[in-house]
Design a protein around this nucleic acid. Sequence first.
DNA 1: TAGTGGTCTAGACCACCTG
DNA 2: AGGTGGTCTAGACCACTAC
Lengths: 239, 239
Amino acid sequence: MYRYREIYSDIKRDILTNHYRAGTLLPTQEILTEKYAVSRLTLKKALNLLADEGLISSKQGSGTYVRPRMDNQTGELLPLDIPIGVTYSHRDQKISSQVLYFNARLPNAKEQQNLQIEASQPVYEIKRVRLVNDQKYSYEHTIMPVTIAPLDETILQGSVYDYLGTYAKIQLTDARRVVYAEGADQETASALDLAVGAPTFAIEQIAYDQKGRAFEYSVSRFTSERSKFVLDIHLNRLY
Amino acid sequence: MYRYREIYSDIKRDILTNHYRAGTLLPTQEILTEKYAVSRLTLKKALNLLADEGLISSKQGSGTYVRPRMDNQTGELLPLDIPIGVTYSHRDQKISSQVLYFNARLPNAKEQQNLQIEASQPVYEIKRVRLVNDQKYSYEHTIMPVTIAPLDETILQGSVYDYLGTYAKIQLTDARRVVYAEGADQETASALDLAVGAPTFAIEQIAYDQKGRAFEYSVSRFTSERSKFVLDIHLNRLY
DNA sequence: TAGTGGTCTAGACCACCTG
DNA sequence: AGGTGGTCTAGACCACTAC
Protein backbone atom coordinates (compact mmCIF):
# COMPACT_ATOMS: atom_id res chain seq x y z
CA MET A 1 0.00 0.00 0.00
CA TYR A 2 1.23 3.46 -0.87
CA ARG A 3 1.77 6.13 1.69
CA TYR A 4 -0.23 8.79 -0.16
CA ARG A 5 -3.19 6.43 -0.38
CA GLU A 6 -3.08 5.84 3.36
CA ILE A 7 -3.04 9.56 4.03
CA TYR A 8 -5.87 10.05 1.53
CA SER A 9 -7.99 7.46 3.31
CA ASP A 10 -7.14 8.90 6.70
CA ILE A 11 -8.10 12.47 5.83
CA LYS A 12 -11.17 11.28 3.97
CA ARG A 13 -12.37 9.45 7.03
CA ASP A 14 -11.77 12.54 9.13
CA ILE A 15 -13.86 14.60 6.72
CA LEU A 16 -16.69 12.09 6.47
CA THR A 17 -16.88 11.77 10.26
CA ASN A 18 -16.96 15.55 10.60
CA HIS A 19 -13.66 15.66 12.41
CA TYR A 20 -12.79 18.22 9.77
CA ARG A 21 -16.02 20.14 9.38
CA ALA A 22 -17.47 21.33 6.07
CA GLY A 23 -16.72 24.95 5.26
CA THR A 24 -13.69 25.16 7.54
CA LEU A 25 -10.04 25.17 6.64
CA LEU A 26 -7.92 22.05 6.72
CA PRO A 27 -4.64 22.34 8.66
CA THR A 28 -1.89 23.80 6.52
CA GLN A 29 0.12 21.48 4.32
CA GLU A 30 3.14 22.08 6.51
CA ILE A 31 1.33 20.90 9.62
CA LEU A 32 -0.06 17.88 7.82
CA THR A 33 3.38 16.88 6.53
CA GLU A 34 4.59 16.93 10.14
CA LYS A 35 1.58 14.96 11.36
CA TYR A 36 2.12 12.20 8.82
CA ALA A 37 5.89 12.56 8.69
CA VAL A 38 6.05 12.70 4.88
CA SER A 39 7.32 15.14 2.29
CA ARG A 40 5.08 17.80 0.95
CA LEU A 41 4.77 16.13 -2.44
CA THR A 42 3.42 12.93 -0.92
CA LEU A 43 0.89 14.91 1.06
CA LYS A 44 -0.14 16.84 -2.04
CA LYS A 45 -0.80 13.60 -3.90
CA ALA A 46 -3.24 12.66 -1.17
CA LEU A 47 -4.89 16.08 -1.30
CA ASN A 48 -5.18 15.84 -5.08
CA LEU A 49 -7.14 12.62 -4.72
CA LEU A 50 -9.50 14.34 -2.30
CA ALA A 51 -9.88 17.29 -4.67
CA ASP A 52 -10.68 14.84 -7.49
CA GLU A 53 -13.61 13.59 -5.47
CA GLY A 54 -14.78 17.09 -4.72
CA LEU A 55 -14.21 16.76 -0.98
CA ILE A 56 -11.78 19.68 -0.68
CA SER A 57 -10.68 22.64 -2.75
CA SER A 58 -7.42 24.50 -2.35
CA LYS A 59 -6.76 28.14 -3.02
CA GLN A 60 -3.30 29.59 -3.29
CA GLY A 61 -2.65 32.04 -0.53
CA SER A 62 -5.68 31.27 1.61
CA GLY A 63 -5.75 27.56 2.35
CA THR A 64 -7.55 24.29 1.73
CA TYR A 65 -11.28 24.25 2.35
CA VAL A 66 -13.44 21.28 3.27
CA ARG A 67 -16.32 21.42 0.84
CA PRO A 68 -19.88 20.79 1.94
CA ARG A 69 -20.81 17.33 0.76
CA MET A 70 -23.45 16.60 -1.77
CA ASP A 71 -26.20 14.40 -0.45
CA ASN A 72 -25.35 10.80 -1.00
CA GLN A 73 -28.85 9.45 -1.18
CA THR A 74 -27.61 7.26 -3.99
CA GLY A 75 -30.11 4.60 -3.09
CA GLU A 76 -31.81 4.30 -6.44
CA LEU A 77 -29.31 6.26 -8.49
CA LEU A 78 -26.75 4.41 -10.56
CA PRO A 79 -23.39 6.06 -11.18
CA LEU A 80 -23.06 6.85 -14.88
CA ASP A 81 -19.27 6.94 -14.88
CA ILE A 82 -18.62 3.43 -13.59
CA PRO A 83 -19.40 1.08 -16.44
CA ILE A 84 -18.76 -2.17 -14.61
CA GLY A 85 -22.00 -3.72 -15.60
CA VAL A 86 -25.25 -3.81 -13.73
CA THR A 87 -23.83 -6.51 -11.50
CA TYR A 88 -21.66 -4.28 -9.39
CA SER A 89 -23.98 -1.32 -9.32
CA HIS A 90 -26.65 -3.29 -7.52
CA ARG A 91 -24.68 -4.97 -4.77
CA ASP A 92 -26.91 -6.74 -2.27
CA GLN A 93 -29.46 -7.17 -5.01
CA LYS A 94 -30.18 -10.36 -6.88
CA ILE A 95 -28.99 -10.06 -10.47
CA SER A 96 -29.83 -12.47 -13.25
CA SER A 97 -29.98 -12.58 -17.03
CA GLN A 98 -32.27 -14.05 -19.67
CA VAL A 99 -30.40 -14.75 -22.87
CA LEU A 100 -32.86 -14.06 -25.68
CA TYR A 101 -30.42 -14.43 -28.55
CA PHE A 102 -26.85 -15.65 -28.99
CA ASN A 103 -25.09 -16.16 -32.27
CA ALA A 104 -22.10 -15.17 -34.40
CA ARG A 105 -22.06 -13.34 -37.74
CA LEU A 106 -20.10 -10.80 -39.75
CA PRO A 107 -20.23 -7.18 -38.58
CA ASN A 108 -22.12 -4.42 -40.35
CA ALA A 109 -20.53 -1.09 -41.24
CA LYS A 110 -21.32 0.69 -37.99
CA GLU A 111 -20.02 -2.22 -35.93
CA GLN A 112 -16.81 -2.34 -37.97
CA GLN A 113 -16.22 1.32 -37.32
CA ASN A 114 -17.01 1.23 -33.61
CA LEU A 115 -14.94 -1.89 -32.94
CA GLN A 116 -12.12 -1.01 -35.34
CA ILE A 117 -12.30 -4.34 -37.15
CA GLU A 118 -12.43 -5.60 -40.73
CA ALA A 119 -15.60 -6.79 -42.46
CA SER A 120 -14.24 -10.33 -42.52
CA GLN A 121 -13.78 -10.60 -38.76
CA PRO A 122 -16.79 -12.31 -37.13
CA VAL A 123 -18.52 -11.01 -34.01
CA TYR A 124 -20.82 -12.41 -31.36
CA GLU A 125 -24.28 -10.92 -31.18
CA ILE A 126 -26.01 -11.16 -27.81
CA LYS A 127 -29.40 -10.00 -26.61
CA ARG A 128 -30.07 -10.22 -22.91
CA VAL A 129 -32.73 -9.03 -20.50
CA ARG A 130 -31.21 -8.13 -17.14
CA LEU A 131 -33.30 -8.62 -14.03
CA VAL A 132 -32.88 -7.09 -10.60
CA ASN A 133 -34.76 -8.95 -7.88
CA ASP A 134 -36.59 -10.80 -10.67
CA GLN A 135 -37.93 -7.55 -12.11
CA LYS A 136 -37.14 -6.74 -15.72
CA TYR A 137 -34.66 -3.96 -15.69
CA SER A 138 -32.79 -3.48 -18.94
CA TYR A 139 -32.49 -4.91 -22.43
CA GLU A 140 -28.93 -5.21 -23.73
CA HIS A 141 -27.81 -5.68 -27.29
CA THR A 142 -24.10 -6.53 -27.35
CA ILE A 143 -21.59 -6.99 -30.17
CA MET A 144 -18.16 -8.46 -29.40
CA PRO A 145 -15.39 -9.68 -31.73
CA VAL A 146 -14.99 -13.45 -31.40
CA THR A 147 -11.21 -13.01 -31.23
CA ILE A 148 -11.48 -11.44 -27.78
CA ALA A 149 -12.52 -14.60 -25.97
CA PRO A 150 -14.76 -17.65 -26.55
CA LEU A 151 -18.24 -17.17 -25.10
CA ASP A 152 -21.11 -19.52 -24.34
CA GLU A 153 -24.55 -19.20 -22.82
CA THR A 154 -23.37 -20.17 -19.34
CA ILE A 155 -20.95 -17.27 -19.22
CA LEU A 156 -23.67 -14.90 -20.38
CA GLN A 157 -25.79 -15.76 -17.31
CA GLY A 158 -23.24 -13.98 -15.11
CA SER A 159 -20.85 -11.09 -15.45
CA VAL A 160 -19.04 -11.06 -18.77
CA TYR A 161 -16.54 -8.52 -17.49
CA ASP A 162 -15.47 -10.82 -14.66
CA TYR A 163 -14.99 -13.62 -17.16
CA LEU A 164 -12.94 -11.45 -19.52
CA GLY A 165 -10.76 -10.25 -16.68
CA THR A 166 -9.84 -13.73 -15.47
CA TYR A 167 -9.83 -15.65 -18.75
CA ALA A 168 -8.45 -13.14 -21.25
CA LYS A 169 -6.74 -10.66 -18.90
CA ILE A 170 -8.84 -7.90 -20.37
CA GLN A 171 -9.66 -4.96 -18.13
CA LEU A 172 -12.11 -2.24 -19.03
CA THR A 173 -10.11 0.95 -18.57
CA ASP A 174 -11.85 3.37 -20.94
CA ALA A 175 -15.30 3.70 -22.41
CA ARG A 176 -17.27 6.05 -24.53
CA ARG A 177 -20.93 6.31 -23.66
CA VAL A 178 -23.60 8.01 -25.68
CA VAL A 179 -26.86 8.47 -23.81
CA TYR A 180 -30.28 9.53 -25.04
CA ALA A 181 -34.00 9.07 -24.60
CA GLU A 182 -35.90 6.95 -27.09
CA GLY A 183 -39.39 5.62 -27.55
CA ALA A 184 -39.44 1.82 -27.27
CA ASP A 185 -39.59 -0.06 -30.56
CA GLN A 186 -41.43 -3.34 -31.00
CA GLU A 187 -38.50 -5.51 -29.92
CA THR A 188 -37.58 -3.47 -26.85
CA ALA A 189 -41.19 -3.11 -25.81
CA SER A 190 -41.83 -6.84 -25.81
CA ALA A 191 -38.54 -7.60 -24.06
CA LEU A 192 -39.29 -5.18 -21.21
CA ASP A 193 -43.10 -5.51 -21.11
CA LEU A 194 -43.60 -1.92 -22.18
CA ALA A 195 -45.94 -0.24 -24.61
CA VAL A 196 -44.47 0.62 -28.00
CA GLY A 197 -43.36 4.27 -27.86
CA ALA A 198 -42.92 4.31 -24.09
CA PRO A 199 -39.88 6.40 -23.07
CA THR A 200 -36.68 4.45 -22.46
CA PHE A 201 -33.21 5.56 -21.43
CA ALA A 202 -30.52 4.28 -23.79
CA ILE A 203 -26.80 3.90 -23.12
CA GLU A 204 -24.70 3.14 -26.17
CA GLN A 205 -21.23 2.08 -25.09
CA ILE A 206 -17.91 1.26 -26.67
CA ALA A 207 -15.58 -0.42 -24.16
CA TYR A 208 -11.79 -0.29 -24.49
CA ASP A 209 -9.20 -2.44 -22.74
CA GLN A 210 -5.88 -1.41 -21.24
CA LYS A 211 -4.18 -1.44 -24.65
CA GLY A 212 -6.86 0.75 -26.22
CA ARG A 213 -8.56 -2.01 -28.22
CA ALA A 214 -12.33 -1.75 -28.53
CA PHE A 215 -13.68 -5.06 -27.28
CA GLU A 216 -17.40 -4.43 -26.91
CA TYR A 217 -20.09 -2.35 -28.52
CA SER A 218 -23.45 -2.41 -26.80
CA VAL A 219 -26.75 -0.62 -26.49
CA SER A 220 -28.64 -0.95 -23.22
CA ARG A 221 -32.18 0.28 -22.83
CA PHE A 222 -33.68 0.94 -19.41
CA THR A 223 -37.25 1.36 -18.32
CA SER A 224 -37.67 5.00 -17.49
CA GLU A 225 -39.53 4.66 -14.18
CA ARG A 226 -36.95 2.56 -12.41
CA SER A 227 -33.74 4.00 -13.79
CA LYS A 228 -32.06 7.29 -12.99
CA PHE A 229 -28.33 7.85 -13.32
CA VAL A 230 -26.08 10.20 -11.42
CA LEU A 231 -22.88 11.90 -12.52
CA ASP A 232 -20.70 14.03 -10.27
CA ILE A 233 -18.56 16.56 -12.08
CA HIS A 234 -15.43 18.21 -10.69
CA LEU A 235 -13.70 20.94 -12.65
CA ASN A 236 -11.43 22.28 -9.93
CA ARG A 237 -8.42 20.12 -10.72
CA LEU A 238 -5.62 21.63 -12.73
CA TYR A 239 -3.28 18.71 -12.93
CA MET B 1 2.42 29.27 -18.03
CA TYR B 2 3.64 26.18 -16.24
CA ARG B 3 6.34 23.97 -17.62
CA TYR B 4 4.36 20.74 -17.24
CA ARG B 5 1.48 22.24 -19.19
CA GLU B 6 3.78 23.19 -22.03
CA ILE B 7 5.16 19.67 -22.17
CA TYR B 8 1.63 18.27 -22.01
CA SER B 9 0.57 20.40 -24.97
CA ASP B 10 3.71 19.54 -26.89
CA ILE B 11 3.35 15.79 -26.51
CA LYS B 12 -0.38 15.97 -27.13
CA ARG B 13 0.25 17.73 -30.41
CA ASP B 14 2.79 15.09 -31.35
CA ILE B 15 0.24 12.37 -30.66
CA LEU B 16 -2.61 14.06 -32.51
CA THR B 17 -0.40 14.68 -35.55
CA ASN B 18 0.68 11.04 -35.52
CA HIS B 19 4.29 11.93 -34.79
CA TYR B 20 3.88 9.43 -32.00
CA ARG B 21 1.74 6.74 -33.57
CA ALA B 22 -1.11 4.90 -31.85
CA GLY B 23 -0.16 1.52 -30.42
CA THR B 24 3.54 2.32 -30.23
CA LEU B 25 5.63 3.15 -27.21
CA LEU B 26 6.45 6.69 -26.22
CA PRO B 27 10.15 7.41 -25.57
CA THR B 28 11.16 6.50 -22.04
CA GLN B 29 10.63 9.03 -19.29
CA GLU B 30 14.39 9.41 -18.99
CA ILE B 31 14.75 10.38 -22.64
CA LEU B 32 11.82 12.78 -22.40
CA THR B 33 13.27 14.48 -19.33
CA GLU B 34 16.45 15.07 -21.29
CA LYS B 35 14.55 16.32 -24.33
CA TYR B 36 12.62 18.89 -22.31
CA ALA B 37 15.39 19.47 -19.76
CA VAL B 38 13.12 19.01 -16.74
CA SER B 39 13.00 16.75 -13.72
CA ARG B 40 11.17 13.48 -13.88
CA LEU B 41 8.38 14.72 -11.64
CA THR B 42 7.56 17.59 -13.96
CA LEU B 43 7.46 15.23 -16.90
CA LYS B 44 5.22 12.82 -15.01
CA LYS B 45 2.74 15.61 -14.30
CA ALA B 46 2.47 16.16 -18.03
CA LEU B 47 2.04 12.43 -18.67
CA ASN B 48 -0.63 12.23 -15.99
CA LEU B 49 -2.65 14.87 -17.80
CA LEU B 50 -2.40 12.86 -21.00
CA ALA B 51 -3.45 9.70 -19.17
CA ASP B 52 -6.43 11.58 -17.75
CA GLU B 53 -7.60 12.24 -21.27
CA GLY B 54 -7.10 8.64 -22.28
CA LEU B 55 -4.38 9.47 -24.81
CA ILE B 56 -1.69 7.30 -23.21
CA SER B 57 -1.45 4.51 -20.68
CA SER B 58 1.66 3.59 -18.73
CA LYS B 59 2.63 0.18 -17.50
CA GLN B 60 5.33 -0.37 -14.94
CA GLY B 61 8.20 -2.30 -16.42
CA SER B 62 7.16 -2.12 -20.05
CA GLY B 63 6.63 1.51 -20.99
CA THR B 64 4.09 4.14 -21.95
CA TYR B 65 1.74 3.30 -24.81
CA VAL B 66 0.02 5.70 -27.15
CA ARG B 67 -3.60 4.61 -27.12
CA PRO B 68 -5.68 4.42 -30.28
CA ARG B 69 -7.99 7.40 -30.27
CA MET B 70 -11.72 7.16 -30.05
CA ASP B 71 -13.50 8.71 -32.99
CA ASN B 72 -14.08 12.35 -32.35
CA GLN B 73 -17.15 12.76 -34.50
CA THR B 74 -18.62 14.89 -31.77
CA GLY B 75 -20.58 16.85 -34.29
CA GLU B 76 -24.05 16.40 -32.84
CA LEU B 77 -23.04 14.97 -29.51
CA LEU B 78 -22.92 17.21 -26.46
CA PRO B 79 -20.41 16.42 -23.73
CA LEU B 80 -22.26 15.40 -20.59
CA ASP B 81 -19.45 16.28 -18.22
CA ILE B 82 -19.04 19.94 -19.14
CA PRO B 83 -21.98 21.77 -17.60
CA ILE B 84 -21.17 25.20 -18.91
CA GLY B 85 -24.59 25.80 -20.31
CA VAL B 86 -25.83 25.24 -23.78
CA THR B 87 -24.06 28.41 -24.88
CA TYR B 88 -20.58 26.97 -24.96
CA SER B 89 -21.54 23.54 -26.20
CA HIS B 90 -22.88 24.92 -29.44
CA ARG B 91 -20.13 27.29 -30.50
CA ASP B 92 -20.69 28.65 -33.99
CA GLN B 93 -24.39 28.16 -33.46
CA LYS B 94 -26.91 30.86 -32.76
CA ILE B 95 -28.20 30.55 -29.21
CA SER B 96 -31.19 32.39 -27.78
CA SER B 97 -33.69 32.11 -24.96
CA GLN B 98 -37.39 32.70 -24.49
CA VAL B 99 -38.20 33.56 -20.89
CA LEU B 100 -41.59 32.00 -20.19
CA TYR B 101 -41.69 32.72 -16.47
CA PHE B 102 -39.64 34.75 -14.01
CA ASN B 103 -40.52 35.39 -10.41
CA ALA B 104 -39.37 35.01 -6.80
CA ARG B 105 -40.95 32.95 -4.03
CA LEU B 106 -40.12 30.82 -1.01
CA PRO B 107 -38.54 27.42 -1.67
CA ASN B 108 -40.33 24.11 -1.21
CA ALA B 109 -38.86 21.23 0.78
CA LYS B 110 -36.95 19.62 -2.10
CA GLU B 111 -35.46 22.96 -3.14
CA GLN B 112 -34.39 23.71 0.41
CA GLN B 113 -32.61 20.40 0.62
CA ASN B 114 -30.91 20.63 -2.76
CA LEU B 115 -29.77 24.22 -2.28
CA GLN B 116 -28.96 23.87 1.42
CA ILE B 117 -31.08 26.87 2.43
CA GLU B 118 -33.72 27.70 5.01
CA ALA B 119 -37.43 27.86 4.27
CA SER B 120 -37.38 31.62 4.85
CA GLN B 121 -34.77 32.35 2.18
CA PRO B 122 -36.43 33.36 -1.11
CA VAL B 123 -35.44 31.97 -4.49
CA TYR B 124 -35.83 32.97 -8.11
CA GLU B 125 -37.88 30.68 -10.27
CA ILE B 126 -37.14 30.78 -14.00
CA LYS B 127 -38.58 28.90 -16.93
CA ARG B 128 -36.82 29.28 -20.25
CA VAL B 129 -36.98 27.69 -23.66
CA ARG B 130 -33.52 27.51 -25.24
CA LEU B 131 -33.24 27.74 -28.99
CA VAL B 132 -30.39 26.69 -31.27
CA ASN B 133 -30.56 28.25 -34.72
CA ASP B 134 -34.12 29.30 -33.87
CA GLN B 135 -35.17 25.71 -33.29
CA LYS B 136 -36.65 24.79 -29.93
CA TYR B 137 -34.09 22.76 -28.15
CA SER B 138 -34.63 22.46 -24.41
CA TYR B 139 -36.94 23.59 -21.65
CA GLU B 140 -35.21 24.67 -18.45
CA HIS B 141 -36.73 25.10 -15.03
CA THR B 142 -34.24 26.85 -12.75
CA ILE B 143 -34.26 27.67 -9.03
CA MET B 144 -31.63 30.05 -7.61
CA PRO B 145 -31.35 31.72 -4.19
CA VAL B 146 -31.83 35.48 -4.53
CA THR B 147 -28.82 36.06 -2.27
CA ILE B 148 -26.47 34.78 -4.97
CA ALA B 149 -26.92 37.74 -7.31
CA PRO B 150 -29.71 40.04 -8.54
CA LEU B 151 -31.26 38.82 -11.79
CA ASP B 152 -33.50 40.43 -14.39
CA GLU B 153 -35.00 39.35 -17.69
CA THR B 154 -32.22 40.92 -19.74
CA ILE B 155 -29.62 38.77 -18.06
CA LEU B 156 -31.73 35.69 -18.64
CA GLN B 157 -31.60 36.24 -22.41
CA GLY B 158 -27.90 35.40 -22.38
CA SER B 159 -25.60 33.19 -20.36
CA VAL B 160 -26.34 33.32 -16.65
CA TYR B 161 -23.03 31.64 -15.85
CA ASP B 162 -21.07 34.39 -17.59
CA TYR B 163 -22.99 36.98 -15.60
CA LEU B 164 -22.40 35.22 -12.29
CA GLY B 165 -18.70 34.89 -13.04
CA THR B 166 -18.17 38.57 -13.73
CA TYR B 167 -20.69 40.11 -11.34
CA ALA B 168 -20.60 37.82 -8.32
CA LYS B 169 -17.23 36.11 -8.85
CA ILE B 170 -18.98 32.78 -8.77
CA GLN B 171 -17.43 29.95 -10.74
CA LEU B 172 -19.09 26.61 -11.34
CA THR B 173 -16.53 24.09 -10.14
CA ASP B 174 -18.67 21.08 -9.21
CA ALA B 175 -22.03 19.75 -10.18
CA ARG B 176 -24.22 16.77 -9.55
CA ARG B 177 -26.30 15.67 -12.49
CA VAL B 178 -29.10 13.16 -12.43
CA VAL B 179 -30.23 12.05 -15.87
CA TYR B 180 -33.24 10.03 -16.94
CA ALA B 181 -35.84 9.56 -19.64
CA GLU B 182 -39.34 10.89 -19.08
CA GLY B 183 -42.55 11.22 -21.01
CA ALA B 184 -43.39 14.89 -21.62
CA ASP B 185 -46.02 16.36 -19.31
CA GLN B 186 -48.50 19.01 -20.44
CA GLU B 187 -46.22 21.94 -19.64
CA THR B 188 -43.10 20.50 -21.27
CA ALA B 189 -45.03 19.32 -24.30
CA SER B 190 -46.45 22.74 -25.05
CA ALA B 191 -43.12 24.48 -24.42
CA LEU B 192 -41.28 22.22 -26.86
CA ASP B 193 -44.11 21.58 -29.36
CA LEU B 194 -44.23 17.88 -28.51
CA ALA B 195 -47.06 15.46 -27.92
CA VAL B 196 -47.86 14.68 -24.30
CA GLY B 197 -46.03 11.49 -23.37
CA ALA B 198 -43.34 11.90 -26.02
CA PRO B 199 -39.93 10.76 -24.73
CA THR B 200 -37.68 13.53 -23.39
CA PHE B 201 -34.19 13.45 -21.95
CA ALA B 202 -34.00 15.14 -18.54
CA ILE B 203 -30.93 16.53 -16.78
CA GLU B 204 -31.46 17.51 -13.17
CA GLN B 205 -28.51 19.53 -11.95
CA ILE B 206 -27.24 21.03 -8.72
CA ALA B 207 -24.40 23.48 -9.37
CA TYR B 208 -21.77 24.30 -6.74
CA ASP B 209 -19.32 27.19 -6.66
CA GLN B 210 -15.66 27.21 -5.64
CA LYS B 211 -16.57 27.35 -1.94
CA GLY B 212 -18.93 24.41 -2.22
CA ARG B 213 -22.16 26.43 -1.99
CA ALA B 214 -25.05 25.19 -4.06
CA PHE B 215 -26.13 28.15 -6.19
CA GLU B 216 -28.48 26.60 -8.73
CA TYR B 217 -30.93 23.75 -8.97
CA SER B 218 -32.35 23.11 -12.40
CA VAL B 219 -34.14 20.57 -14.54
CA SER B 220 -33.57 20.70 -18.29
CA ARG B 221 -35.64 18.64 -20.69
CA PHE B 222 -34.46 17.95 -24.21
CA THR B 223 -36.31 16.72 -27.25
CA SER B 224 -35.17 13.18 -27.82
CA GLU B 225 -34.56 13.33 -31.57
CA ARG B 226 -32.09 16.17 -31.54
CA SER B 227 -30.20 15.50 -28.33
CA LYS B 228 -27.65 12.83 -27.62
CA PHE B 229 -24.94 13.23 -25.00
CA VAL B 230 -21.49 11.73 -24.86
CA LEU B 231 -19.38 10.82 -21.86
CA ASP B 232 -15.82 9.54 -22.04
CA ILE B 233 -14.72 7.47 -19.07
CA HIS B 234 -11.12 6.83 -18.06
CA LEU B 235 -10.38 4.46 -15.22
CA ASN B 236 -6.67 3.99 -15.78
CA ARG B 237 -5.48 6.74 -13.47
CA LEU B 238 -4.39 5.77 -10.00
CA TYR B 239 -3.56 9.14 -8.54
C1' DT C 1 4.64 41.75 5.12
C1' DA C 2 3.70 37.14 6.43
C1' DG C 3 1.70 32.97 5.36
C1' DT C 4 -0.35 29.89 2.22
C1' DG C 5 -0.49 26.63 -1.66
C1' DG C 6 1.76 25.64 -6.53
C1' DT C 7 5.77 24.36 -8.98
C1' DC C 8 10.24 22.35 -9.73
C1' DT C 9 14.80 19.93 -8.90
C1' DA C 10 18.24 16.10 -8.17
C1' DG C 11 18.58 12.04 -6.48
C1' DA C 12 17.21 7.62 -4.28
C1' DC C 13 14.79 3.32 -3.82
C1' DC C 14 11.20 0.01 -5.13
C1' DA C 15 7.93 -2.83 -8.14
C1' DC C 16 7.18 -4.73 -12.31
C1' DC C 17 8.01 -6.52 -17.06
C1' DT C 18 10.82 -8.50 -20.65
C1' DG C 19 15.04 -10.66 -22.45
C1' DA D 1 19.77 -9.08 -15.14
C1' DG D 2 18.64 -4.86 -17.10
C1' DG D 3 15.40 -1.47 -18.04
C1' DT D 4 11.08 0.66 -17.22
C1' DG D 5 7.66 3.32 -14.64
C1' DG D 6 5.94 4.38 -9.59
C1' DT D 7 6.99 6.38 -5.26
C1' DC D 8 9.25 9.38 -2.03
C1' DT D 9 12.50 12.93 0.03
C1' DA D 10 14.54 17.58 1.31
C1' DG D 11 14.82 21.73 -0.11
C1' DA D 12 14.16 25.84 -3.07
C1' DC D 13 11.64 29.40 -5.36
C1' DC D 14 7.32 31.50 -7.08
C1' DA D 15 2.29 33.18 -7.03
C1' DC D 16 -1.43 34.41 -4.66
C1' DT D 17 -4.22 36.04 -0.52
C1' DA D 18 -4.87 38.18 3.55
C1' DC D 19 -3.91 41.65 7.04
